[in-house]
Amino acid sequence: MKVLIAKPGLDGHDKGAKVICHTLRDAGIEVIYTGLHKSVEEIVSAAIQEDVDAIGLSMLSGAHLYYAEKIISGLKAKQAGDIIVFVGGVIPDRDMEKLRNLGVEGIFPGGSPLNATADFLHRKIGDK
């Protein structure tokens, strides 16, 4: 299994993203981290080039709806709609439903147990 952890947009807080990278690695998953300040195009293109099974968006900036929508439609436009998109970070309760309607399959707001993300990926993707 191969996962891309991405920091879309202008926010520079990536301790959470790095902690998730380490946790997934320790759970036996191959992880690629985009680094800070990535655009929709950069994230979609990295995911396709690296042939990942899933993309995790680390969002603390309040722009989660915008970026989830753009990245999911960007993947579909490149015939990569099978890549699972999940989101973690500062996600208000009122946006959970909206994110799911956009096609986000896993949401991990502050307070989620650390292993929840790896469990979700193993459940969704199996032991690929």
Binding site: G9, L10, S61, G62, A63
Partner: peptide, 22 residues
């Protein structure tokens, strides 16, 4: 907001989705 913190105008492509947030 983050576009202001990063020296971008609100109509910059890279600012989209983040104008007036945080």
């Amino acid at each position: 907001d983050l576009p202001t913190q990063m020296g971008l105008d609100s109509d910059d492509q890279a600012a989209q989705g983040e104008v007036g947030r945080v």
